[in-house]
Design a protein around this nucleic acid. Structure first.
Lengths: 365, 365
DNA sequence: TTTGGCACTCTCAGCGGTAGAGTGCTAGCA
DNA sequence: TGCTAGCACTCTACCGCTGAGAGTGCCAAA
């Protein structure tokens, strides 16, 4: 299997040279601790992992690993716990990615093929799949392109004479907005009939296609008054879509994180909720993750945000830079099942990519 | 001020007759406990509330209230805590609703008038306003009508030949779906040109307006092959929109709930997350709350779901039954600042109603 | 009907003792 | 040189105990 590179997101770090025994001990400590959440001692290690040496030997190896900063000690006479650096080393050099079950992958693909629904349904499904498979909190953001262009406008007449503008962008984003009826009347110089609106919509569809927000704003000024008024609204909608904010975030599996002993105290949960409720943090992550494709692993203090110092993130982008990019991944305590989570995130991102491909037409250019 | 009725959602309960002193004591216990989260004793009560009687007198009143089921006792020598019934009595008969600050209401209205954006933005804003004002978790669901009708279809050509159907319903809901390009080609008997699609869209807009899902499905069969194929997709989209599921829920202020001592243990938080992440529970709530308008208060075990036995809900519907109804409210421990939360929920729901009104045209029918 | 007094109960924080797990170090062994 | 066994030491978690504090319930007196 080809070696996958998962480098530290924040700093590149030369892998320390370890002896074969040290590597075995580090691996055992990480894997045991991930399962048990209890600091692991030398005796338990030889017992559980059938290492053919005495505890004393393990202790000496552990002491070496601690000197290198790969393990720590909650207090003098407790077992060892991996440090962030220890997890990092493990992820880069020690971990054997657990293959996803063939059954699992088939099941997941099947679910996605069943749901031939809206893109939001896909994202919801992606989140719930990630959460269920990794037993951690999952986050999926919609794919957005940074410079959205106008694709299509429709002016809809609802019940009660309410008028709504629905704009579709070239990346497939749909933006809607209610129009102020009074302002419409003013712009039209009298109550706007359906014909007036149809004409305005046709005009805008002809004139604005492929334009960005500022272009649309400029072009709008030269149109008939009603169309010009609507063009203003359209330009605002484009600007907003451009605006950096990821607005909707699909999450699932928060309860899994709640179950983890490290978050039982309640207060440690705060940063997690912040991430999941407000999207600023993901906003910050997006360029980092998209700059280089593939799965990104961010462990504990490697995280730019100090509040997240006990949290690991495993994220991947999906979509294509030319069209639109989104972010998906999982989030949990640093004590996370990396060998399972990393391939899962990778797999779900490729599933979403395939879906996007299969819906972007039968001719590839 | 007119008496507002907030009856038990599950069972109507005749108000117990209490003496003036008992009422004063109950009110003081509730208000003190809401502030302090600590069981309140007789001595503390006379001290803090300047009642001109001795602790012993208060004790006797407390004992009466306990016999009536309005107060409880965590253990023999602890202070008193209101029971669910005690809160209920308080909410119905004792509470003085705290007027919202004039400054607050102006500020909130101002925020909403600033944001002349999409309906989702309104809901997001409503959630964050509720959360900030009540310091509890807020939930807002989009307004949906049970029997959505077709208002408008648009077939959009995205980059890469991806085709998307965007359907607007009479209640203003926008539903989108990617179309399977291969299936389109099959239905059109060859690659579908933009003209073909425009023609199909025009046909459907002419034929399907005002139809429900089954009607649209029937009518669709009689159309030209390409239009018929798209009509099938449209009917599915209508069915889904009808389908009971509230999909998106806007929440805010989860962190406030996290701060409450009753949820510090972590495990008690589970039901709250359930409510906020999956919408089944709100689904269940919707008919209950909309059947009779106004603010509904559901306290602790009054809740149909036993997992929520330590949670109070304060919800109101918004929108109009003829068009579309949504739900909004807050959620927190039973020990909640009802006098503040109830008027806040009422106010935000009227603000949303006003917004909807002001956008449904200048002629009312 | 209210009040003061008193005995009783229960929680909470602090304290010491103990068992258990784990470490670090050192001397001996292959 | 590397591994092992043994030993002293350290720290936590748990248990039971104690005293302080808060609060109740009840009773007799005002």
């Amino acid at each position: 299997m080809p070696e996958r590179s998962q480098q530290a997101a924040t700093q590149a770090r030369p892998p320390v040279d370890l002896t074969e025994r040290q590597r075995a001990v580090l691996r055992a400590v990480v894997e045991d601790y991930v399962l048990s959440a209890v600091p692991v001692g030398s005796r338990a290690l030889v017992r559980r992992y059938g290492l053919n040496v005495s505890p004393a030997t393990i202790r000496s190896a552990m002491a070496d690993l601690e000197a290198l900063g790969l393990l720590t000690h909650p207090h003098t006479s407790a077992g060892r716990v991996p440090s962030d650096l220890g997890y990092r080393y493990y992820v880069e050099a020690l971990m054997r990615e657990s293959e996803l079950d063939r059954a699992d992958t088939l099941m997941i693909r099947h679910q996605f093929s069943q749901v031939q629904l809206t893109s939001n349904d896909w994202l919801r499904l992606a989140a719930s799949t990630l959460a269920a498979s990794t037993r951690a909190a999952a986050v999926v953001t919609p794919a957005r392109s940074r410079r959205a262009k106008f694709a299509h406008l429709q002016l809809v007449d609802l019940a009660d004479r309410a008028r709504m503008a629905v704009v579709v962008l070239t990346d497939g984003t749909v933006v809607e907005r209610h129009l102020d009826p009074a302002a419409l009347t003013r712009a039209a110089g009298g109550p706007a009939s359906q014909e007036d609106l149809d004409a305005a919509a046709a005009e805008l569809n002809a004139e604005l296609t492929g334009l960005t927000a500022p272009q649309a704003r400029r072009r709008g000024r030269k149109l008939t008054p009603l169309a010009a008024h609507v063009a203003g609204a359209v330009a605002e909608m484009l600007e907003e879509a451009d605006g950096t904010s990821i607005e909707e975030v699909f999450t699932d599996g928060l309860a899994y994180v709640l179950d983890q002993p490290e978050f039982a105290g309640g207060t440690a949960l705060r940063p997690v909720l912040e991430v999941l409720q407000h999207a600023d943090f993901l906003e910050q992550l997006l360029p980092m993750v998209t700059r280089r494709g593939g799965v990104h692993v961010i462990i504990g203090r490697e995280n730019p945000n100090d509040a997240m110092r006990e949290v690991s993130l495993i994220f991947a982008p999906y979509g294509t830079p030319e069209r639109a990019l989104g972010l998906l991944g999982v989030l949990g305590p640093t004590r996370m099942a990396y060998p399972r989570a990393i391939p899962t995130v990778r797999f779900v991102s490729t599933v979403l990519n395939d879906l996007i491909d299969s819906h972007s037409g039968w001719t590839h250019d």
